[in-house]
Amino acid sequence: MTAAALAPAWVRPTARALPTAPLLGAAVAVVGLATARLLVDGFTSAPPGLLEALLAGTVVAALHDPAADLLAASPTGRLHRHAHRLWLVLPLALALWVLPTAAGDLVDSTGWPTGPVVALTATGVALALLLPGPSGVTLGSAVTLAWGAATFVVPPEDAGLLLPWLHHPWLHCAAVAAVLGLTLPRRRR
């Protein structure tokens, strides 16, 4: 039996329904910058915050579903369909982030940390899940991009407070998970 036959029936149509242009754009940006960093300093410097934001924003954008209204009364609800999309996109995004930086290990550096990009992605995804309709996805993407870009303007002495996703990423993830845990059960429609 082929892998396609074994895959759940939703995998293929969900994958085809994903917006491919932002995903490809983010892939090119991450791989391109990672390659440049590898060549210049062997990943010894931190990635620009905007790159993390770009990847996180792209994951959130993958939740945009032009047929959401048509599918709104489906027994497979909105959160379930979002979960399908994340199930497909998150491994890709993580691989996109980890694989180029794994190359950094070959040149004896620690590579780029995964915590900040995970924390920023969690923030955007949470907003997309909590707010109804397309506004949630738009706001989720916008917040991740803006918060990532804020690394350029926030003074170093305030960064610990204003950029928790960068300086305390796993604590940030725990806070996001707690908010989701408390609010999502009431937003299952």
């Binding site: 939703w10 149509p13 047929a67 209204d69 048509l70 709104a72 027994p75 497979t76």
Partner: peptide, 30 residues
């Protein structure tokens, strides 16, 4: 929802799908 059909006023569709693909996807979700 298993026994309900809904047509919204402005049903967005996936332009790259065929009618068969789209209705099949809806059937999967149903």
């Amino acid at each position: 929802r298993r026994r309900l059909g809904y047509l919204p006023q402005d049903p967005g569709l996936y332009p790259g799908f065929t009618p068969f693909d789209l209705v099949d996807y809806v059937a999967v979700l149903k």
